[in-house]
C-alpha cells in the first residue's frame, strides 16, 4: 500500500474498531427484547398475590387454593396434630430447617415456625408440592398422619416436614399474612 495509508494507521484503525464495537452494542441491545419477552408478563406478575377467605375452614378441614399456578394447602389442624408435631424432636427430622419464607432462612423446623405463629398454631399454610420431584402429596395419610406422596413414597408429618422417603426438604411455606382473622393474603 502507498505511503498515504501508512501515514495514519491509528485513525483508521480507531474508526474500524469503534464501528465494530457500535455494531456489537447495537446487536446486543436488539437481542434484549427477544429474551425479555420470555419473562413472566404483566398479567402473570399482577396475579402474584391472592386473598383467601378461610372462615369456612373448620378444625380438621383443609382448603386447597391456587397461587402462581401451584396448589397451596391451608389446613386447620386438630389439637392432636399440633401436639404430635410439637412433640417431635428436631433431631428426628430429616430436614431441620423451617423452609418458611416469612422467617429467616435458617429458622429451625419447630412446629411454631412451621405454623402461622403464636396464637395461630392450628393454621398450617404451605405449598402442596413434594420437594422431591414436584408431585402433589395426599393429605391425612402416611405413617406420620400428615402427607404421603404417591409418586415416590415420601412421607411428611402433620407440620409438613419430611420424615422418610427420597424428598430432601420440608414442604415450602409461601410468603403470606393474615389481613384479618378470616382472610389471608398469599404472596
Amino acid at each position: 500500500m502507498s505511503a498515504h495509508d501508512t501515514a495514519e494507521p491509528t485513525r483508521r484503525d480507531f474508526l474500524y474498531i469503534a464501528t465494530g464495537m457500535a455494531g456489537a452494542v447495537g446487536a446486543a441491545s436488539l437481542a434484549w427484547p427477544f429474551i425479555d419477552q420470555m419473562r413472566p408478563d404483566a398479567s402473570t406478575l399482577a396475579a402474584a398475590s391472592v386473598e383467601v377467605d378461610i372462615s369456612s375452614v373448620t378444625e380438621g378441614m383443609s382448603l386447597t387454593v391456587k397461587w402462581r399456578g401451584k396448589p397451596i394447602f391451608i389446613r386447620n389442624r386438630t389439637p392432636k396434630e399440633v401436639d404430635d408435631a410439637k412433640n417431635t424432636a428436631l433431631s428426628a427430622l430429616k430436614d431441620p430447617i423451617a423452609r418458611n419464607a416469612n422467617l429467616a432462612s435458617d429458622a429451625p423446623a419447630t412446629d411454631i415456625d412451621r405454623s402461622a405463629g403464636a396464637g395461630k398454631e392450628k393454621w398450617l399454610i404451605m405449598v402442596g408440592i413434594c420437594t422431591h420431584l414436584g408431585c402433589i402429596p395426599l393429605g391425612e395419610s402416611g405413617e406420620y398422619g400428615g402427607w404421603f406422596c404417591p409418586c415416590h413414597g415420601s412421607t411428611y408429618d402433620t407440620a409438613g416436614r419430611i420424615r422418610s422417603g427420597p424428598a430432601p426438604e420440608n414442604m415450602a411455606i409461601p410468603p403470606y399474612q393474615f389481613v384479618s382473622d378470616t382472610h389471608i393474603k398469599i404472596g
Partner: peptide, 13 residues
Amino acid sequence: EKIMRDVNSGWLL
C-alpha cells in the same frame, strides 16, 4: 392484544 399490553417488549416485537 395480550402481546401488545402485557408481554414484556411485546408491543415492540
